[in-house]
Design a protein around this nucleic acid. Structure first.
Lengths: 160, 160
DNA sequence: CGAGTCAGTTGCTTCGTGCAACCCAATGTG
DNA sequence: CACATTGGGTTGCACGAAGCAACTGACTCG
């Protein structure tokens, strides 16, 4: 997405998309949620152009979705963390993940599984643990490589 | 969003965004879900450029999210309906709606409420009825104007 | 003292988007 | 009958966002 406004739209979906509907934004949030916090790490992981990553991070910080924290001075280096607002995107992310899994599945199964930290149960696309039935939030969950990730790791090996 | 691919990403979120992450796509789905089915109607409601709407609709049809059905011949006129795959975007939409409502609220309250058809209860951002506790799907829900819609209707009146 | 790391910025090109105008068949209006 | 309007688009142009590669600048490591 380009411009960050949908003029004339009065709807919280449109408002949400103004902020996180830009190309790459949600994927950046996903990666930060998964533990990538540094510029180069994000850039390599996503294959995004550096200037675009730079503007996206700035915007996500402005919108209070990410927080930029120095982890050393001289030279100044920063890490990006999710704010509460950013963490709260988790239900939207797993809803999209679920939809993707159901309708454009990978041949060997999902490359990523979301499990409940406490009991290890799989988490549905509504964020409910299928083992214990609890309604979960971002901090209760953990991403693990799924069956589809194996084929991938293999492909990565052979290309090296 | 622009190109519809995120090269090198192996993740169902990225796959989902390839399809519905383009600018306007999700808003089109939202509008069709709300009963708008015709080209001009969508164009006016969204304020989207006609050529862009045209390409978006084609792509959504290609991706089996919308179905294009003629409702008259000569001159041929078409309506767009959601497929099962399209309807299944509902959980993602209400998750985004919920996030928008929580973090960028409208001053007079949400402009749109999602309620359970059967019991009239409000539906949470996980798609669970807060009245009867059932886990719901697109067909169980209905959108109603919320408190924030009044101020809007007023603004629309005065501008006429 | 040269190579590498990290977090960007700069410049250029390409491609997606917004906008307005046009097209065409049929239908409504005076 | 002439003329405007509706519906569903297509075409052409201008502009801004994204992709790519190169560069910067402060430091560290061997």
């Amino acid at each position: 997405m380009l411009r960050h406004d949908y003029p004339g739209q009065v709807c919280s979906i449109a408002k949400a998309l103004e902020v996180i509907g830009e190309r790459w934004s949600l994927l950046i949030v996903r990666d930060v949620m998964g533990g990538r916090r540094r510029f180069d790490d994000l850039q390599k992981g996503l294959g995004i152009a550096r200037n675009v990553l730079s503007t996206r991070l700035q915007r996500l910080v402005e919108e209070d979705i990410l927080e930029r924290r120095p982890y050393q001075e001289s030279p100044p280096r920063y890490e990006y963390f999710l704010t509460e607002k950013g963490l709260d995107l988790w239900p939207s992310l797993i809803a999209l993940l679920g939809w993707g899994d159901r309708h454009s599945p990978y041949p060997d199964g999902p490359p990523m599984l979301i499990v409940h930290k406490e009991c290890g149960g799989q988490i549905s696309d509504r964020g409910i643990c299928e083992e214990c039935g609890k309604l979960l939030h971002a901090r209760d969950a953990q991403a693990l490589p799924g069956p589809g990730a194996k084929a991938l790791a293999l492909a990565a090996q052979t290309s090296e």
